[in-house]
């Protein structure tokens, strides 16, 4: 089936299988930042934005994205690098496999929540699993990042 997508601001028309999910479509299109770590919608590594909302790309049928605006970290390189600066200074990217999806959620949170408390930050980011860091360093980095912005 042919669908129209806007990926990181660029319009594309692509052919997808009916039961294809966005994470696979995006990887096939070369957006290799999109990682998958489960088949049960549990890990959050595949997080991208659909019309600006953080969404599990592994769980959305590509066809459903027809006409939508998709954003991956490839399209947010500058914002991502700014956050990466803080995250890496904290040492809170270890294997890094979870980092792009995590960063996408952090950037979404930044625009959705104003002055979030620690609890609100943790709540917003809970859907991003990380097996390496134990989350504390990520939290330190997010708080520093928000401070720097403020």
């Amino acid at each position: 089936m042919l669908i129209n997508l806007s990926i990181n601001g660029k319009d594309v028309r692509i052919d997808v299988a009916k039961d294809e999910f966005l994470a696979d479509t995006l990887r096939a299109q070369g957006f290799l930042s999109v990682k998958k770590a489960c088949d049960t919608s549990c890990c959050g590594l595949c997080t991208i934005w659909i019309d600006g909302k953080p969404t599990l790309s592994c769980s959305v049928l590509s066809i459903r994205a027809d006409g939508k605006k998709l954003t991956t970290i490839e399209g947010l390189q500058q914002e991502a690098a700014e956050f990466a600066e803080v995250l890496t200074a904290e040492g809170a990217e270890q294997c890094g496999f979870c980092s792009p999806g995590f960063t996408m959620t952090v950037l979404a949170m930044k625009s959705e929540l104003k002055n979030p408390s620690d609890d609100e930050i943790v709540h917003y980011l809970t859907g991003n699993l990380c097996r390496c860091t134990g989350y504390m360093g990520q939290l330190r980095a997010v708080k520093k990042y928000l401070e720097v912005l403020a």
């Binding site: 930042s33 990466a84 995250l87 890496t88 040492g91 890094g96 980092s99």
Partner: peptide
Amino acid sequence: SISKIDGMALVTGKP
């Protein structure tokens, strides 16, 4: 506390 030399690539989603 030096940042990891590959950190930037990992976080910004490089292949």
